[in-house]
Design a protein around this nucleic acid. Sequence first.
DNA 1: TCTACCACACTACCATGCAAGTATGCTAGT
DNA 2: ACTAGCATACTTGCATGGTAGTGTGGTAGA
Lengths: 224, 224
Amino acid sequence: MLNRTKYQNSTRDFVYETLRDAIVSLELPPGATISEKEISEELEVSRTPVREAFLRLTEDELLTVLPQRGSYISLIDLNHVEDARFLREQAEAGIIRLACESFSHSYIEKLEKNLKYQKFARDNDDENELFILDKEFHRLIAEGAGKTRVWEVIQKMDTHSNRLRKLSLAMKLNWKKLVDQHKEMVAAIKAKNPDQAEQLMREHLALLIYDQKALKESYPDYFN
Amino acid sequence: MLNRTKYQNSTRDFVYETLRDAIVSLELPPGATISEKEISEELEVSRTPVREAFLRLTEDELLTVLPQRGSYISLIDLNHVEDARFLREQAEAGIIRLACESFSHSYIEKLEKNLKYQKFARDNDDENELFILDKEFHRLIAEGAGKTRVWEVIQKMDTHSNRLRKLSLAMKLNWKKLVDQHKEMVAAIKAKNPDQAEQLMREHLALLIYDQKALKESYPDYFN
DNA sequence: TCTACCACACTACCATGCAAGTATGCTAGT
DNA sequence: ACTAGCATACTTGCATGGTAGTGTGGTAGA
């Protein structure tokens, strides 16, 4: 677990972020039981901020609390994953249409710079870096279209998918296609062609429908 | 304020729902200051569940907490309102397309029954009932399309708009058009015409861009 | 009269104790 | 040996006291 001093923020945020990262990274796997007391001792804080972090995690549907019985890391619900993906597809389809209308030159440049790094990371099989660049790519489009807040809301819903993504080792196979799609999207935005841009975005996000069946068979305890 | 005994749930939920209703109904107006102690005394509970309710309200962006200084009801941010409307438009556009593919006969019947009541309420100038029926209409489409959860997420983001709606007395003028649009949407779903249905939904939700400028001038203290 | 400073009254944050419900394992009775 | 029941050790929910930071009003000094 991380050290508290890294955070200038409240103890509550420290506990929340620590647990959230541990859950999304599967360090705390779905189904694992944790208690307020246990965490408060591990992180050397009192039960109050832990309890408040638990509440937020419950709202994020990352933690399930059974009163007077115990708490456990929520199992991955593939229906929730698909709902989040669906909402993300609708939102980003609308956002990229806006981008075709309103994108400034400086954001085009930012996207192209990001693309260069994506290609470099792809050629070096640097999956972690590609994951970060992919996230940044989508964030840039939203920011350039003036919809940063919408993107953040979507991100928050997407934590379940992030756990699934972590589980998926087969992702690597998609990276080439993914970078190519990004490239085409930038071209569509530059050409101010909203129909094509939307189409590309929808196809792109459909890729996120991983081989869920196989994952569920490999890790049956992680799903419900 | 409501009586606690109405709730079988936790004290925390009682406080949260009580405050949430008070905020959305503008009983607690934007900018009003409240404190944990004050609310705990009014509702006759301890500070802990109040504090936990405050946390949830902060996540909903209905409450702003300044550590060691105080808390106040968040001002209405028109940018947030538009972001929520935008996301809702994208989501419901996608949902109604799904509805055109997958709607069962029983849901068509539910929509038509709802429509009848809408017409009745409109002819009787019953705005409150129309508000409820409108909400139910959209919920039914989402439910019939298998996207109930997506609809609920959107609803949660929509609290800012709800406050604005409460403020808007001019809404009545739109009711006739609104019911007509609903009627056309049902027809498009029955005809399984997704393009037309989506178009109708987008026009419909664009109506929610109220006369914000006038409202902001009438209630300058409520906005930021 | 004006200003600098300090005491005080507030706030939210965190620590901790108690209450109430639940699961579990041991013991006593058959 | 087996089972019913109780003591006990958990859990989270709620109450409350202390802490540290912030704003304010009054007072003392110029």
